[in-house]
Design a protein around this nucleic acid. Structure first.
Lengths: 240, 240
DNA sequence: CCAATAGTGTCTATCAGACAATATCCC
DNA sequence: GGGATATTGTCTGATAGACACTATTGG
């Protein structure tokens, strides 16, 4: 009510990255072992503060993605804001979390700034077997849940695959992220009947065993219609 | 590369609110006419800076909701972060946007701190007929889109209704937010077959004309299964 | 009775899920 | 051929959308 010259508080802004990929048909997240306090020696999400006053937030996210993971040109979207007072012992830090989805990578991130980066199965984090710094476990949970949800009605699954991929590879993405088994024949028909999801690309891919598979690349469509429904959420016992 | 004592930049953190409601079967958003520069006299979203270093971000959102709209106990969820350098001429301001959904209100927000608040049809904003301050038009677009999407697979629609409501009222929510017409008979069957969406409440509601309607209240379920699908996104001309 | 809104029943094209059958590779 | 994977086809139960019909009010 008074007219004192009030000044709004200034806070520190950070970005944190939930980078997901598939390795061995399991969903993994990129974590770095912290080299400094606080939480020294603990695993944490890659990230960092804004470089300066004029850096855009998503530019900072892309910069960290390159610096800490050596990645560029991957799917990147904002996940949310995590700014509880007390989440960082160094002071009031508000973190903007991003979700990144990368295709299978050649190797566990070598030769980058952060040689302490490791791909960790998300189960290790979600189950609580692996402790993370700050509120990063919560952020990983939110990121995985976002990925699961977006698989249903967007073409996000193609971001887990390389430039070209087979329908079976796409299916393994859904199976790994959702943690379910899918009938390959129905999946095949479903994907191909969702127009714009995938488009034919080039020749075949030979397998160790079995018939070669056609290759596809991501189609023009971002929103899937009809969506890829994740079954089994219905409570049992529907009766008339 | 040098080891200068680098200090991360400190920025100003604001919250902005996209408050939606239904009036006259049309979707409206709450806007305030700015009393000070910049953008004096222009409509803007209600919002403001963090009060102090220790205020949680969602607490700030609830505070602004009360101060500027006189609202409490409404649906509130984070929408996103808007922090482009240059979006605010006063300096580097990062804004956390929230989406709020309120039931039909008694009157156009009277007696509150911000008597300059008005309910504006979202069409006025989305069509560009009404100019908004900062990047607030973009934020409104994102908020409306979020609401449209969440109507499909969550019980968000009930947040537009009062404590109790009829199926027809719920239908008008879907029609107004999606901008479509829905067959009342199919809608009725759909809502009642989605278990946990609504539960019977109390007696009937008499209408000016016609048979009285049963009253319902929001059910325990937040995620709808099966979802309320928004039809017509399919490209026409499905051919085998 | 009439107008208007609430609620139920029915029909049909479509679709998801189960699963048989065929195709094409490597050995 | 045999093992393995890819792709197509078929069947069936559930469902969305169209729409006829009944129910219950006020006037």
């Amino acid at each position: 009510m008074a007219d004192e010259p009030w000044e709004p508080p200034r806070i520190l802004l950070a970005v944190d990255l939930v980078i997901l990929t598939l390795r061995d048909d399991r969903l993994h997240v990129l974590l770095v072992e912290r080299g400094i306090e606080p939480y020294q020696g603990t695993f944490a999400l890659p990230g960092g503060f804004l470089r300066d006053e004029h850096e855009a937030i998503d530019a900072a996210a892309r910069r960290e993605l390159a610096e800490e993971a050596g990645l560029a040109d991957v799917h990147l979207e904002m996940l949310g804001v995590y700014g509880e007072p007390g989440r960082d012992p160094r002071g009031r830090v508000v973190s903007v979390a991003y979700l990144a989805v990368a295709p299978r990578l050649p190797e566990p991130v070598a030769g980058t700034d952060a040689a302490d980066a490791h791909w960790i199965p998300v189960d290790e984090v979600l189950s609580g077997r692996l402790e993370l710094a700050f509120d990063h476990r919560r952020i990983v949970e939110d990121g995985v849940e976002r990925a699961r949800a977006k698989l249903e009605h967007t073409a996000l699954a193609t971001a887990f695959c390389g430039e070209t991929f087979t329908i079976a590879e796409l299916q393994r993405v859904y199976e790994a992220v959702w943690g379910v088994r899918i009938d390959p024949r129905n999946f095949y028909r479903k994907v191909k009947s969702t127009r714009g999801f995938v488009v034919p690309a080039g020749p075949m891919r030979r397998n160790a065993n079995g018939r070669p598979a056609r290759l596809y690349r991501a189609g023009p469509v971002r929103v899937l219609y009809p969506p890829m429904v994740r079954a089994g959420q219905a409570e049992e016992g529907q009766r008339s």
